[in-house]
Design a protein around this nucleic acid. Sequence first.
DNA 1: CAACAACTTCAAGTGCACTTGAAGTCAAGC
DNA 2: GCTTGACTTCAAGTGCACTTGAAGTTGTTG
Lengths: 158, 158
Amino acid sequence: MDARDLLTIGQIAARAGVATSTLRYYEDEGLVLPALRTDGNRRLYHREALRRIAFIRSAQRVGLGLAEIRAALAQLPDGRTPTVADWSRLSATWRSRLDAQIRLLESIRDDLDGCIGCGCLSLDRCRLYNPDDAAAVRGSGARYLEGDTSADVLGANR
Amino acid sequence: MDARDLLTIGQIAARAGVATSTLRYYEDEGLVLPALRTDGNRRLYHREALRRIAFIRSAQRVGLGLAEIRAALAQLPDGRTPTVADWSRLSATWRSRLDAQIRLLESIRDDLDGCIGCGCLSLDRCRLYNPDDAAAVRGSGARYLEGDTSADVLGANR
DNA sequence: CAACAACTTCAAGTGCACTTGAAGTCAAGC
DNA sequence: GCTTGACTTCAAGTGCACTTGAAGTTGTTG
């Protein structure tokens, strides 16, 4: 474990392109822990941390929340440095998420041509408006997920 | 303007599948205004409001924030009921947004095969990690299009 | 007319992912 | 030794999109 393999929080932040405050936050959240502290209590990270951060940022771009990401990272082996195979297995899991999301957007786009493109925005027919395949969760979770499915609110008499 | 064309906040909420509190919030935000108030100060909406709400929810699914949506809605003619053409023109503006988002996700997927798929997560090369091609998906608010809610997307229960 | 649901306003709270600020400590260069 | 900058902790603040709660009013129904 060469000291040259250890990076300060500022170095990690610069290399990973995140703020130092973000790294402290990630530590609080148990997402990225520093390898050790100096005598003077400064954080020192393994290069490995960069990979974790990369994973987190990428997963966020795919639409995952930190809780889900933490759950994913928890599957990494502890005790040993994750191998390429470990990371591959992990990222493969959100490949399907990504595919699903692309499919969703494409279906929205298709609906846009067929539905909104015509200006109808029909409440009872428009899949764009009535996504049966997804709950559009924005911000905090769990709000729409329960109860609000509001099934057949759309009167037959339109 | 038949009174039967006017709906209470509860009726609008039920038909549109949103909470009444959301409608009051949208009013505060200037997104959906009731047509008038009753003697007893209750809100009464035109059916037209349903279309506005449909537009808002759809635009949210495409990743727009309420500020952008408000700006879009501001382009609608005031004084007259928007026509099909008005709505079409409006929704066409986020068709390009949608296309861009799809392209972004596809490029992430391609990188996933070529980069994360190999476990590298290279910080300096990986486009997945260094998205130079799109405005960052920022903030807690408008996370893009969370595709579904199945908790095991990341294999958490595996 | 009493009960009750549906509505009203206004203020405050929620959840996420951070950021900012205050007050202090540590390390390097001059 | 002094300054400067990078770091430390902890608390509080931010932005978005709502939701919740309290306290009161309105409208309908038995």
